[in-house]
């Protein structure tokens, strides 16, 4: 659906995007994740045809973004960061204007605007001036703008930035709903957001792709050390740490201070071999301690992100 090859953008001598290769297939929700200034917005702006790449090619549905700019733009719905709409227009007039520019006929236009009002929850604010709206409402108008012609590809730049938690959940639900049929690319620097909304995550740092894959594969693929949480009743730290420390694969055992004095909580750092939880269980079973918790903590996305994008 979207095929990007060696995409590069220079602002003067500053290289914002450096030889990015990316393929996005139909019906995928892809999250572009990266610290501020990593080149996310620049990449999205090039995908929408707003900025011209310094070099590299973008093909969308096998159409070149240079030669068939109009056809490509018709396929894409784009919501720039913080939804810069015309402040002096009424919401209805604005959507009507967008529909008009997209060449929709008047009956279809009215129908579509009503559909979008329901989908994005705009029915009550159609008669308000865009400038009066709160940030969350503006964002929803922006979403309606992007979805006007039912585009096959939806590109959203930080769709939830600056929203309150309720609005974030609402917007995320809308994105999920759209993402069932459409190709969605969104950028964010909030990890939980990418984790919650996306099928696939592309981590960008300093204009390059640092990692690319599904949330699961990113977590597993990174390997290395992982952590197991264990809570015991009726156990003594000295004894327990000696017993568990002896298990093959455990590198370190640490006590977690908890509010409950009867409960001994341990954090176990393990080097790698799997089936470790079975061995710990067997070890505890041999004693008369009572096990109340045994969980393995996957390497969090946050940790992966920090490892990949840390300043060296």
């Amino acid at each position: 659906m979207i095929h990007v090859e060696k995409l590069t953008k220079f602002y003067g001598s500053f290289c914002a995007v450096d030889q990015i290769d990316l393929d996005v297939s139909r019906g995928e929700i892809t999250g572009l994740l990266g610290p501020n200034g990593a080149g996310k917005t620049t990449t999205l702006r090039m995908l929408t045809g707003y900025l011209a790449p310094t070099s590299g090619t973008i093909r969308i549905n096998d159409l070149s973004i240079d030669d068939d700019a109009l056809a490509v733009k018709k396929l894409i719905g784009y919501l720039p960061e913080s939804a810069p709409l015309y402040h002096n227009m009424l919401v209805y007039d604005y959507l009507d204007y967008v529909a008009g520019i997209r060449g929709m006929q008047s009956r279809r236009k009215a129908e579509r605007i009503h559909e979008l009002a329901d989908l994005c929850g705009l029915s009550g604010i159609m008669h308000k001036t865009v400038g009066e709206l709160s940030k969350g409402l503006k964002q929803r108008v922006g979403l309606a703008h992007a979805m006007m012609e039912d585009p096959q590809i939806l590109i959203l730049d930080e769709p939830t930035s600056g929203l309150d938690p309720n609005q974030i959940v609402e917007i995320r639900d809308i994105i999920r709903r759209i993402g069932r049929e459409k190709t969605v690319i969104l950028s964010t620097h909030i990890l939980s957001e990418a984790e919650a909304a996306c099928d696939r995550i592309v981590i960008i740092d300093k204009g390059r792709i640092a990692a690319d894959g599904s949330t699961e594969s990113l977590k597993q693929g990174s390997g290395g050390e992982h952590t197991i949480h264990l809570s015991l009743l009726g156990a003594d730290f000295e004894e327990a740490s000696r017993a568990i420390g002896a298990i093959d694969g455990v590198s370190r055992v640490e006590r977690v201070e908890g509010a409950n004095v009867d409960e001994l909580r341990l954090r176990i750092f393990a080097g790698g071999p799997d089936r470790l939880r079975e061995k710990i269980y067997a070890c505890v079973k041999a004693t008369d301690w009572i096990m109340v918790e045994l969980t393995q903590e996957g390497k969090s996305l946050e940790k992966i992100f920090r490892d990949l994008t840390r300043e060296v």
């Binding site: 045809g49 109009l70 733009k73 784009y78 997209r102 703008h145």
Partner: peptide
């Protein structure tokens, strides 16, 4: 200044 130019230009217009 307001950035709405970006929204306008990413609509199918020349």
């Amino acid at each position: 200044h307001s950035g709405s130019y970006e929204m306008l230009l990413t609509l199918p217009v020349k």
